[in-house]
């Protein structure tokens, strides 16, 4: 057992857990943040993606010890109160989801993609960058549309801040 200290969605968290605990299990089972999903559990589908120190990584392939002291953001931490994050709003408006299972991972990846490609985001780049996130419902078309739409909204939101 070890004690790890993290900041999760802006709050300090301290948990004493077995060393084999994966971040996704800490989030879901200890912190009741069940928005982060376990999809394939083999590091391929991206449903478990969260931000660790601002980078979109797979929480099912991260031991909690590896990120002791880190800043973690999950799907529960991106809205401002009742106001959805622009990426969430764009997914809703563009029908970017069907069953919704992959959506938290998609959104966390997509925010990271927009952050990294502020000015040069086109459809091809979005499709390439989303290859670590698997969706079995949508055929990706509306997901790509959502990300491109959100990229514009995030730019506007940033300019306003």
């Amino acid at each position: 057992m070890s004690t790890v200290k993290l900041t999760v969605n802006g709050k300090s968290v301290s948990a004493t857990v077995e060393d084999r605990t994966l971040l996704v299990h800490l989030l879901r089972e200890n912190l009741n943040l069940t928005g982060t999903h376990v999809g394939c559990d083999t590091s391929q589908c991206g449903a478990c993606i969260v931000h660790i120190d601002g980078k979109a990584v797979k929480s099912c392939t991260t031991l909690v010890g590896q990120i002791d002291g880190a800043n973690v953001t999950t799907i529960e931490g991106i809205a401002k109160g009742d106001q959805l994050h622009p990426m969430q709003a764009a997914f809703r408006d563009n029908h970017g989801l069907q069953c919704g299972y992959c959506t938290p991972g998609m959104i966390m990846s997509a925010i990271d993609i927009v952050n990294r490609h502020a000015s040069d985001l086109d459809e091809e780049t979005v499709r390439q960058e989303l290859e670590g996130n698997i969706c079995r419902c949508t055929g990706y078309h509306n997901i790509v549309k959502s990300v491109l739409d959100a990229a514009g909204r995030m730019k506007v939101a940033q300019a306003a801040e």
Partner: peptide, 9 residues
């Protein structure tokens, strides 16, 4: 190599 989340780690 891999995907963006893999490339971060």
């Amino acid at each position: 190599l891999g995907d963006p989340a893999v490339r971060y780690r």
